[in-house]
Design a protein around this nucleic acid. Structure first.
Lengths: 228, 228
DNA sequence: ACCTGAACACCGTTCAAGT
DNA sequence: ACCTGAACACCGTTCAAGT
């Protein structure tokens, strides 16, 4: 298998796409240089001609995902333009469930990442935001600019047996009454306690809108970090 | 070294505290079961009597950090009580720079984590928040309940030589004009482009307050997820 | 019954030997 | 000059042999 002359020659793009597909398939924790090489029918060392090391491979994978984010829509106000763009980022992220974790682990911004951030900043500026406010607003947006929120900790799936499940829930409710109350009033189809039985998309948009509305209010009142 | 009879016997707490100290010292990426064992003067397998595996070790380390968060202050309104509590969480997190990364990587909530979340929910409820609003507000708070924000991508440190640094910055400004504008107007003491030269604590409080103000507004107008 | 050294099945990456 | 197999220095964890 090591020397099919008709094999498509490797290149950086093919390596990155294969890595993204493999991570989609087996999960990011099972993506290794070795099994990526195997997937490509190549010796592990062959990858090192196209990426310097695994960190750079992950950087490249992030670039692929960021490349899937739609361009900003024109002819609309800053708020809905940014809203749509971030929700498009979210769609890309949801297609690659490992991506948020990898984005958070990156040490440095790559050009593709910088370009996305630059473009987002430009959208606030086009909406008339001061440099000052734009700066803080970008920080406040934080990882939500990539379309994800840190999940609240998921709780383990409830036991199969209904009797023990009920007993465990009773015990749980005694220790964590507020979580239990929350869970019983919002979980519709599932028995889990927190972070399930609620609509992740709704939660994301709720938080995004709280932030965007807050930004708008500050903008309208000509907020400055150095008052008086 | 393997059998000093006067050695303090290992226990889960000692293992966890040593792990926290070692991670503080050498960084989380260098914390392994093997060098933790060595630090404790013990064979690696000895650790497995106190934690089932590395995941559980990390869970335990999070518990130690969450244990450092101050109890809620009494005799004040929900908003400043929550604000102070989250800022106390932030202080704990800042003492252990690896902690945010580990918190984000946890698969399941441990009892200590559940207790903290339960208590936070209780603080909103005590402030008169509906269960409905409390639910969404907890999601919107997200990882900020732990006192951290996902950093925007740091850019690599600028080159030493002033001439090449200036040339690189000119090139950077051409590609990313908005980031450059932002950087030149907010970076005071440092030459870096984004995420440096600005006060992280200020950014965190800015974002937290945008959220809390938004929550307050929704609460005051008796917001519901199912309108009319 | 308890402890633990050796081993297993992996990693990412280096390097020198082969062509 | 290019390629790559073997090796290096690690992992987390299993397991059986030793006490």
């Amino acid at each position: 298998m090591s020397s099919d002359p008709r094999r498509v020659p490797l290149n950086r793009d093919r390596v990155l796409r294969a890595a993204v597909a493999l991570a989609d398939d087996v999960g990011i924790e099972s993506l290794s240089m070795r099994n990526l090489a195997q997937e490509l029918g190549v010796v592990p060392m062959a990858l090192y001609k196209h990426v310097a090391n695994k960190e750079e491979l992950l950087d490249g994978m992030v670039e692929v995902i960021v490349g899937e984010i739609a361009a900003p829509v024109a002819d609309t106000d800053w708020k809905s333009a940014i809203r749509q763009r971030v929700l498009s980022a979210r769609e890309a992220l949801l297609r690659h469930r490992w991506a948020s974790q990898v984005i958070e682990s990156r040490a440095h911004a790559t050009p593709v990442v910088l370009a996305y951030m630059d473009s987002l900043i430009g959208m606030f500026r086009a909406g008339g935001f001061s440099i000052d406010l734009t700066h803080h607003v970008m920080h406040a947006l934080g990882s939500r600019m990539w379309g994800f929120t840190q999940e609240v900790f998921p709780t383990p799936p409830p036991p199969e047996d209904p009797a023990t499940r009920e007993a465990m829930f009773a015990q749980f409710a005694e220790k964590y009454p507020h979580i239990a109350e929350l869970a019983t009033t919002t979980a519709h189809d599932q028995d889990s306690s927190v972070g399930k039985g609620c609509d992740d998309q709704f939660e994301f948009e709720f938080a995004l809108d709280v932030l965007l509305d807050g930004f708008e209010r500050l903008h309208n009142q000509a907020w400055t970090s150095q008052p008086h």
